[in-house]
């Protein structure tokens, strides 16, 4: 019964919050937001695929904060590289072997890589076992790959338990 009424409880909550953030808070908007929060998941739930769920919310929060920190640090690095002469750059394509599985965890990993130090993810191999990335500057290929695996992939495996 409850499952029928709220097919996507987390999404309902987020919808209400975003509605209140986009409008000035008032009782009317609260009611309207709750109505939308219930009605939209009814329409949207049949469209969603089964996917891996976040098993460890606390670990996920820590991961998010770490990535935010990395984004700031990586920006200073990239800025420094841009301001130096082009001859110092050694860009490169890298292939990262993946242990992570599932579409949601993999897309989170790819987005994280794109947002952090000098790397952009380009494509997956068809069997989802390799992630190809482009790096702005490669000092040591093996070390760059190991860093990605240890710093981003390992926590994601823990969060999604896969």
């Amino acid at each position: 019964m409850l499952k029928r009424l709220f097919p996507m409880p987390l999404h309902s909550l987020i919808l209400v919050l975003v509605w209140l953030l986009l409008n000035q808070f008032s009782a009317g908007h609260l009611v309207l937001g709750i109505l939308l929060g219930i009605a939209i998941p009814w329409v949207a739930a049949p469209l969603s695929d089964p996917h891996a769920r976040v098993r460890k919310p606390w670990r996920a929060t820590r991961y998010l904060l770490m990535v935010l920190g990395d984004i700031v640090v990586s920006n200073f690095e990239v800025a420094a590289r841009i301001l130096r002469s082009n001859r110092h750059l050694r860009p490169g394509l890298l292939a990262v072997p993946l242990d992570l599985t599932g579409h949601l965890p993999l897309s989170v990993l790819a987005s994280t890589i794109s947002l952090t130090p000098g790397t952009v993810s380009v494509d997956f191999s068809a069997d989802m076992k390799w992630l190809y990335i482009h790096a702005l500057h490669v000092d040591d290929e093996a070390q760059t790959i190991a860093r990605i695996k240890q710093r981003y992939e390992a926590p994601l495996r823990e969060i999604f338990q896969c």
Binding site: L89, R90, P91, G92, L93, L94, A95, V122, D123, F124, S125, A126, D127, K129, W130, Y132, V138, E141
Partner: peptide, 21 residues
């Protein structure tokens, strides 16, 4: 095209075929 000193340019062939390196 890639800039000349790009490492592992041959990987782009594997990426296009979406196969393992």
């Amino acid at each position: 095209p890639f800039v000349e000193n790009t490492l592992n340019q041959n990987l782009s062939r594997d990426i296009l075929r979406r196969q393992a390196p």
